[in-house]
Design a protein around this nucleic acid. Structure first.
Lengths: 125, 125
DNA sequence: TATGCTAGTTTCCAATAGGTACTAAGCACC
DNA sequence: GGTGCTTAGTACCTATTGGAAACTAGCATA
């Protein structure tokens, strides 16, 4: 059986939904170089709240993309790392982040000329 | 100057925000093979509402990723196509969609075993 | 005893997203 | 003249998201 990302209710849509998440992409990319602890992720990925980071990690864990390991130290230590499945994703995710860094200038200037040409009109919603 | 996707307020974050959007990814992927009209996109990408598709297309146009061409036919025809900048993205986007189709089975079984192991506990929020 | 650490969980509230549905414009067709 | 087509714009209303901040647990340190 073949799946089709364009089809409604197709399971691949669920996967794409998960991947189409800014925080999830940043987390996956950050885990490329090895395990990282919760608060380290929180510090590295600026702007993510504790609650949302927890939710993101839980979702990624549920999807089998990352592994959560608890060390009974004091205070407790929790390390997150990529699973083999997650590792198959990182090449693509890194490419996306890399594209963003490479092409940001082109995007910003496109936005400026777009906004300039639409100046004065009311934006939608 | 180098950009850092992990930094708050970094412009690359804006780009990643835009790409981390299910509908945007589906639209970009759908435009790979050539120009497509508005209602054709609406039919192909099941589940997207008119309003959201319009917003998505406007954002992608603003970012310089797609081109909007109006033909003064009756009724009016509007064709969307990838810009050269957008074309540099399609390889990555297609890889993401392809990954989703390839690894859906692994993800679904991971979800099932995760849910089974957590059965009975209350979910967060 | 009080404070702090990690890794969350929970509650409350505000902002945003998104769906439905109505409207427009301009012409072809019946 | 009324209806329909395409591609929107807009209003209304609700559902979901997401932030801030307080709370938990268990133990170490001062």
């Amino acid at each position: 059986m073949t799946y089709d990302v364009y089809a409604k209710n197709c399971p691949t849509r669920l996967v794409l939904d998960r991947l189409a998440d800014k925080w999830a992409l940043l987390v996956l990319n950050r885990l490329r170089d090895g395990p990282v602890r919760f608060n380290q992720l929180r510090r590295d990925i600026e702007g993510v709240s504790q609650k949302v980071l927890t939710q993101t990690l839980r979702n990624l864990e549920r999807d089998g993309l990352i592994h959560r390991q608890v060390f009974p130290t004091v205070p407790v230590t929790v390390e997150y790392s990529l699973t083999p499945l997650g590792q198959t994703l990182t090449r693509t995710v890194a490419a996306l982040a890399h594209w963003a860094e490479e092409n940001i200038d082109a995007v910003l200037s496109a936005q400026q000329s777009f906004d300039a040409s639409k100046a004065g009109r009311a934006p939608m919603q």
